[in-house]
Amino acid sequence: MSNPSPPPPPSNFDFLAIRSECNRIIKADSRNFHAIIFLLLFPISLPLIFYQVFPIKTLGFNLLYTLTIPILSLFATGSTTYSVSHGFHDRPVKLSSAFKAALTSFFPLLSTWLLAQLITAVLGSILGLAFFSLFKATQVDYSSAYFLLLCLAYVTSLAFIVVYLQVNWIFAYPIVVLESSWGLEPLKRSQALVKGREGVASRIVLFWGFFCWLGTWSSMLRLAVSACDELKIWASFIQIITIPAASYYPLFMCYNLVVNTVFYMNSKALRGEFAGEYASLPSDDDDGKVSPAVSIV
Score class of each variant (00 low, 15 high):
W182Y: 06
A275R: 09
S85L: 00
R189K: 11
K188Q: 10
S85F: 00
S20E: 12
P186E: 03
I69V: 12
S190I: 11
L231N: 08
S295Q: 14
L46Q: 04
K27H: 15
P8C: 03
K100E: 11
S133Q: 15
I241R: 03
G196E: 09
C228Q: 14
M265V: 07
R222S: 03
P7E: 05
I296F: 14
A201F: 01
V163M: 09
A201Y: 00
G78F: 01
F207N: 06
L72W: 02
Q191T: 09
L123C: 11
V163I: 15
L281S: 07
D284P: 09
Y248G: 00
I119S: 10
F160N: 14
N266F: 04
V297Y: 11
N23Y: 15
G272Y: 10
E198R: 07
P282L: 14
W234Q: 05
V200G: 01
S96D: 11
A224K: 07
R222M: 03
Y248V: 02
G124R: 06
A246Q: 01
F33D: 04
R271Q: 12
Q139V: 13
I241N: 01
I119L: 15
S83H: 04
V297C: 11
S143M: 10
F54M: 08
P43W: 10
D285A: 13
L221W: 02
G288L: 09
P282D: 13
I119R: 08
A159P: 07
S295T: 15
G87S: 02
I241C: 01
A130V: 15
G87E: 02
E277T: 12
A101R: 04
K94C: 13
R197Q: 10
F135Q: 13
S280C: 12
S133C: 15
S226Q: 10
V225C: 04
V163W: 06
A137S: 15
E273D: 15
P292L: 06
M265Q: 04
Y173W: 13
V162I: 14
L148T: 13
N3Q: 14
N266I: 02
L129A: 10
S30C: 14
L64K: 12
E179T: 03
K136D: 14
P70G: 05
A76N: 05
C151K: 14
L46I: 08
S143N: 10
I25F: 14
L72A: 05
P70S: 05
R203Y: 06
A279D: 14
I56E: 09
L127E: 12
W169A: 01
C22Q: 12
F99M: 08
L214R: 02
I241S: 03
A102T: 03
A28H: 12
F132E: 13
A102Y: 02
D285Q: 13
L74T: 01
F106P: 00
I26N: 08
V262D: 02
A17I: 07
A227I: 10
L221D: 00
Q239D: 04
L223F: 12
M253W: 08
F107V: 07
C228K: 13
A121V: 09
Q239H: 03
A101D: 05
L184C: 02
R197L: 09
N3R: 13
F274H: 09
